[in-house]
Design a protein around this nucleic acid. Structure first.
Lengths: 361, 361
DNA sequence: CTGAAAGCGCTAACAT
DNA sequence: ATGTTAGCGCTTTCAG
């Protein structure tokens, strides 16, 4: 029978009901060390009876953990980031923590101000996604931060923090090799934001594969659908063999798709495409888009789990369950746009193992 | 010259530096009422000098606002919701508040537990997206909540809170009328989660238009791509006229797209499609998908602004700037899948005004 | 094992 | 206009 209707029970109420001191309740509820089993029982009863839940604000003012995790992403509406965020959110929810999401729009100044804002709220940890870390003040601020930080999509060596990234180099190399196997006249790397870490790595992978194949790398940078149209026009080729395009991420792929649509050119007859990053409807395009698929869900979950391991007072699931690997393998998913015979079955390949998998119907 | 390196300055530090009492600093920083311009100046100097920023945790413990807004969405990785969230986040960021995002996965129990968790963190307000509100305990909890709540995508009449929704009925009616104008043999409504408020409204709109057109409504419910395949097979028609499909949301449209792809049927030769909800790549499909576009960004921003208006201590931008309209008009965007001649230019129509707009190439 | 008491940093009376 | 003081609800010494 719960006591008072409208009032939120506080720790002191529990103490009174259990006929013990405040301190004993506090101890009982956090670890239960130094509490007689008798007192413990009465306290637990009172907690249940009153429906008591500790006030997190008071807890965090006192210096204990706040139960709030921050996450800074470039954008919430990009599928890659929102899937990451969703994975992180599910971990925080499992642990009864809260996730604060902030969009940086790829601006260091936003990252810095958001970070400070988060600190004022006593966050317990931060997940930083694809932040460029150019700004000196930002780097200093992060480096001396007392809250643990885990990165995603880019190493955080500048600030000495762990980060979860996909094997971008391998993925790009694998993709390029696949295109090479098709014997296209030329194979072009197309990127949208070449300054990003991931883009540089993927470019390295592309170059490496091209060098191995004895081909001259051709590298394009676009920033809009219109750019993509101009770029495609330049590469419209007389010969029979189509051009192979390696799109470095989903945005690039989207621009190219839109451009091929505008130009009414045929895929993969005139242009073959293979893209980094999977996306909605990729397998419904005509032809379905072959992609290098990142383990997005896994990146998010692992980052969150690693973060919790580093947050004092949030001991990991099974303590010492093992280190989280910081590099995750992408998969090559062949669907048709690369020029492969459009079959019903999708072929899949993992970067590290190179095993060939076949997925259902 | 900032004082101490590693220590975060507190209000008392400012007071000391400015040679005034704590209370004066507090007053100066919140409204600046009852502070001599002389003291004010010294305080501001000290604040700048020390780089002081008020500790939000202490503020919220004291009972003032916490600067945290909660938002419960069914999913973070669905474009509709993540775009909403992004709009809300940009408003909270403008106001120096933080946005906590929680995924409910359409489960009332999750909504309830998340709501309680949010309350323990003293959130200032809540945005509730498409919650079904079946659970009695949830309704009670929300109704008696002392924090303002604003809904999105579904009215919140059960708990007496305002909500921003799209004119679903009008949008669906408009879409169906458009399909009717094509004179298809039959026009079928397809839905994925008929129990949702939006789906019911859209069904009403569909029925209304069908009744007006003197046609018998045909209503399908699917839950997967396989369902869509079976559904399409059933409707494969002998005659020349294709079947017109009204997909009630983007997920429905996706299933149908995948199904047409599997069945290798031609759009809009055999099946014409018009979908509620726009989505990435909709205009890159073959043929591009005609859709009823919701003003997602606007829904999010308006909901957030309305919420801030209701949060004590966060007076709205220009006080009394006017009431936020709770109904927003969707737009009909014709791209080709409905059977219209695939033109370069996209035709657009707003639900309320029915003006015909033409958007550039 | 337990409880009394001192804050965490801030705000809001209540004096002055 | 300004300073003093009493908490907000909790954790944590520190004596019993």
């Amino acid at each position: 029978m719960a006591r008072d209707p409208s009032r939120v029970p506080k720790l002191a109420d529990v103490a009174r009901a259990a006929k013990v001191g405040n301190a004993t309740v506090s101890r009982a509820l956090s670890g239960g060390k130094n509490v007689s089993s008798d007192a413990m029982k009465r306290i637990l009863d009172a907690v249940l009876d009153l429906g008591y839940q500790p006030n997190r604000v008071a807890q965090s003012l006192k210096g204990a953990s706040s139960g709030i995790v921050g996450m800074i992403v470039p954008s919430l509406s990009d599928m890659f980031f929102s899937k990451c965020a969703e994975a992180v959110e599910s971990v925080t929810r499992e642990r009864d923590a809260l996730l604060v999401l902030v969009a940086s729009h790829d601006q260091d100044t936003n990252v810095l101000s958001s970070f400070q804002r988060l600190l004022l709220h006593h966050i317990d940890g931060l997940i930083l996604v694809r932040s460029e870390l150019k700004n000196g003040a930002l780097i200093e601020g992060l480096r001396h931060s007392r809250v643990p930080i885990v990165g995603i999509d880019r190493p955080l060596s500048e600030i000495g923090c762990p980060s979860l990234v996909c094997e971008n180099f391998e993925g790009a190399r694998m993709a390029t090799e696949h295109l090479l196997a098709h014997n296209y006249k030329r194979i072009v790397s197309v990127q949208v934001k070449p300054e990003l870490y991931t883009m540089k790595e993927r470019l390295r992978g592309y170059r490496s594969a091209m060098a191995n194949g004895g081909k001259r790398p051709i590298e394009e940078i676009i920033g809009s659908r219109e750019d993509a149209v101009r770029m495609l026009k330049r590469h419209l080729v007389e010969g029979k063999l189509p051009v192979g395009l390696f799109a470095s991420n989903n945005l690039t792929a989207r621009y190219i798709c839109e451009a091929t649509h505008v130009l009414q050119v045929s895929i993969p007859r005139e242009f073959a495409i293979l893209s980094f990053d999977d996306f909605d409807l990729a397998d419904t395009l005509t032809p379905p888009m072959s992609v290098v698929q990142q383990p997005v869900e896994n990146l998010g979950r692992s980052a969150a789990e690693l973060l919790f391991q580093q947050m004092p007072g949030w001991m990991s699931r099974q303590a010492g369950e093992g280190a989280v690997p910081l590099q995750l393998s992408p998969q090559l998913v062949i669907r048709g746009s690369c020029g492969c015979h459009p079959q019903r079955r999708t072929r899949t390949m993992r970067a590290s193992s190179f095993s060939l998998v076949t997925t259902g119907d």
